[in-house]
Structures are given as structure tokens and as C-alpha cells.
Design a protein around this nucleic acid. Structure first.
Lengths: 239, 239
DNA sequence: CGTGTCATTGAACCGTATCAACTTTAGTGG
DNA sequence: CCACTAAAGTTGATACGGTTCAATGACACG
């Protein structure tokens, strides 16, 4: 039976019925996780591979002075730490944002899966490469974009990703990220982010409110962000 | 015969004599590349895997307005794009900084190497995971550290990495990065970086001049940076 | 020995943080 | 179902870190 994870991966490589079945079985046992609970913490020894089937989560680091930097948002279908088991300890933490459903694949099972199903391995590598591209885009945003450009860019990314897994309808996305989370992702103050969102709202570009993001002028949003979706690698290499 | 790449990888996994020989052979044919030449550009179709045997290079993106963001520095032993061949096009460019020696491994050869030598595959995955950890550290720096902390943090990273491949002696590293490059990596203005470096110099922390970085008060540097080398994953997971 | 690149310094300006208050929304238990 | 409380969002005033613009100095290279 298909789930968010099999949907995502099967779009990244061509799966046989066996590949699909193996992947489905590996993620069959999922558990509900309540909001704001850490799946794993910085310093922990990496455990199983986590797969978000429903809900949202985020990767983050806490600095010595207590400030937080968010490193990535995880949406349904996203997984973490394909090979993190090779490392001695985690260099960041992962926490759910809303009540979620999370499957865990033990390392041994994951290794067997990758070994016996090259198409799955291929799909998971592609997913990881896209995540890396996303990190590079974040570095670029933080280093060289103003706060309004940066906010617009993140909204573009999240909108494209959410849309590609069917979370949006007519330019409106169910979107559970608070201004505090977004500010910690964008490297700015919640106060300032609030003003930036106000500006975008007043310019008629987009509105963020009560758990939903609605994009009213996509062209303007793209142009403010300087968004080029290249880095999300949605065009796959033809075999 | 050992080279920078075999040295690095063999520290990340336990190689048999065969593994080592195969890796050596794959990187046997290297070519000199002059300074400031692109190895590959954003938008290109990914080609072979590049391995920097001597010299320095950097990953970067150019934005629409012409500004540049540097995403990573590559030192001898570093390689790029283990699996990038799975993607349709590059999302960033790579350029040499100084005259360098670069080996190229064709995709087919790389695939065979990973296939037939699990230890090599393991070592290369670890190297990639470390690169990812480094990207997360950069995002954190850009988002939540002041310019002086950020500069100090990058210096810590580069010092540790350079030292681990034998590029330093008594706290002094050969270091070919101009202030312009560093500023584009740190997301600030060359003018401001210059003032930051002056501050670090006057505090007796470190001096950067004419191709060498000399650290005069390592403790103070670490403390300004809030540096925790965890993310470089130098402690490996014991089998 | 010129010429271009990199480094350095000063002055003025602006984007974002900080601090503080207040409003709104969501969650919880009586 | 309402009352209370905590969390999230909003707005204003002020401070400061970092940019911008401009000019000069110091090397390195052809």
C-alpha cells in the first residue's frame, strides 16, 4: 500500500513491483508522534532512519547562547539520515512541529534494502542530493539575500515542495509554521520577520495566517526571491 | 602509490591492499589546472567525479544581481559530487583558487569502484556526510553568529581541516584565500571582513597575511567562534 | 616600471536587532 | 461552554552592526 514515502521515492527512480513492495513493507510500522517532540538530539548516536509519513518536522541546532538555527524543514515523504549511522554522533537535532506519523527503518534493514534494490538506493541518493542542493540554497540566501528576498525565497521553496506532494490547492497551502520557526530558519528576529510578512501582505504578494499560506501574486513572489527551482532538481536525468 | 585522496579516505574506513590499489589506480591520471578556472559550472550536466590532489578550490553560486556566495572550500584530498551524476544539472559551480592538480574519475569507473569495494563506498559516504555537516555549520554561522564569530568559526574549521592533512606547522597554515573570497564565503563585505580581521589581529588571536594564517591564541579563537568540532566528525563510529 | 588586484581606512547611511508594550489566538480546566 | 492562561502575532521607539561609497596604500606580475 502506497504511502507518502513510497510516492515520493517512486517519482525519483523507476521501481519494479518488488521494489515498491519492499519499500512499503519497510515503512509499514509507523507510530504517531506528538507535536514538539525530538526524534533525535545532537550528540546522540544515530539510530534508525526516520521517515515522516504525515506531519512536519525540522532539523535544528542550538548554540551556546541559547539561540536556535533551523537547518531544514521536513514534510510528509521526507526521510532523514540515510547513512548517518556511519557517524559516531548526530551534529544536529530533529523535532516534530505538529502531531505526526513517523516510520523507522532499522539500520540493518535499510542496508539490506539498499543492497537488494538498486532502484531504491538510487532514489534515496537522489533525495539526498536534492537535500544538499537545498542546503546550498539556504547558505546562499543567508549570505546574499536581504530579509524580504530570503523570506520570499523560503516561501517559494516550501510552496513548491508542498505542492509537489499535494498539500496545496489554488495557491493555498496548509502550513503549520509559526513566525518564530520561520524566523529561526531565516536567521532573523521574529519581530523583523513579522514586518517582512506585513510588507509582502501589503504588496499583495502572499498572506500567511492561521496555518495556511496563500500566494496571491506568484510572479511577484518569484521575482522578489530571485527563485530558480533548478536546485530542487525536479527534472531528473534521463537514463 | 598514496596520494592526498587515498590518504584521506583510508582514514575513514579500513582498506584492504586491494581497495587501496584500486583507489590509487583510479586517481593515477591527474592533470594540472591553473588558478581561477572552473571545473564545472552551474547548469552543466554533471560529468566525472573530481578529486583535488593538490591546490584549493571552492563551490559557489552567482546570483542574478552578480553577487557571489561561496558554499564550501575544497582542499587536497577533497572530492566533489559522488553521486551528482544522478542529477540532470549542477546547481552550483566549482573553481580552482590556485594552480592545482585534479584527478577525474569517470562515472562508470566510479560506479564500479563503489560496487566492488564496499570499504571505498563507505569512506566516500562518510566524507559526504562530513561535507553535509559542514554545510549545516555554515547555515548556523550565517544565521546566528555575528561577523566576528562567523569569521573566527570559519578559521577554526579551515585550520582543523588543513592541519589534519598536514598543511600546518606550529599554528601557521599556508592559506591562499584572499579577503574577497573569505568575505563571499562569510556573507559579508570585503571592507567589513577587513575590519574584523584587524580586530582579531589586535586582540592577538590570529593574523592572516600573504598566504598564511597564523593562530596566536587558539583558546580565544575557539571561544569567540563557539567552535565545537563535533560537526567535522573526526571521531568515527567504531565498528 | 607600469598596471591591475588586493588590502586598508574613513565617513555617512540604512537594515535589522533590541526592548517594551499590547492584542489576538489557541489551549486547558473548572 | 466559559474563564483563565500561555503562546503567538503586532506595533512603536531606539540602538547598533554592517554596508556603501570613496580614496589611498601595498604588492605581484607581465
Amino acid at each position: 500500500m502506497a504511502n507518502r514515502f513510497t510516492d515520493k521515492l517512486s517519482a525519483l527512480a523507476s521501481f519494479s513491483a518488488e521494489d515498491f513492495a519492499a519499500l512499503t513493507e519497510a515503512t509499514a510500522y509507523a507510530r504517531p508522534v506528538s507535536a514538539k517532540t525530538d526524534l533525535i538530539r545532537e550528540g546522540d548516536r544515530p539510530g534508525p532512519v526516520f521517515v515522516i509519513l504525515e506531519g512536519w518536522a525540522y532539523r535544528y541546532k542550538i548554540l551556546r547562547d541559547g539561540t536556535r538555527q533551523i537547518l531544514a524543514f521536513l514534510m510528509p515523504g521526507d526521510s532523514c539520515d540515510l547513512h548517518a549511522g556511519l557517524l559516531a554522533e548526530m551534529d544536529h537535532s530533529i523535532q516534530t512541529i505538529v502531531p505526526s506519523v513517523v516510520a523507522t527503518i532499522e539500520r540493518a534493514e535499510m542496508d539490506a534494502l539498499l543492497d537488494e534494490h538498486p532502484a531504491i538506493a538510487r532514489a534515496m541518493y537522489v533525495a539526498q542530493l536534492v537535500d544538499e542542493g537545498t542546503m546550498r540554497a539556504w547558505i546562499t540566501s543567508m549570505g546574499r539575500r536581504t530579509s524580504i528576498q530570503r523570506a520570499a525565497h523560503l516561501m517559494c521553496e516550501l510552496y513548491v515542495r508542498a505542492t509537489s506532494i499535494g498539500l496545496s490547492l489554488d495557491g493555498v497551502v496548509r502550513f503549520p509554521l509559526s513566525q518564530l520557526l520561520l524566523a529561526d530558519a531565516l536567521g532573523m528576529t521574529p519581530v523583523h520577520l513579522n514586518r517582512v510578512l506585513k510588507e509582502l501582505r501589503e504588496r499583495g504578494v502572499m498572506t500567511l495566517s492561521r496555518g495556511s499560506l496563500s500566494i496571491t501574486d506568484a510572479n511577484q513572489l518569484l521575482s522578489i526571491a530571485g527563485f530558480d527551482e533548478n536546485y530542487l532538481h525536479r527534472r531528473l536525468r534521463s537514463a
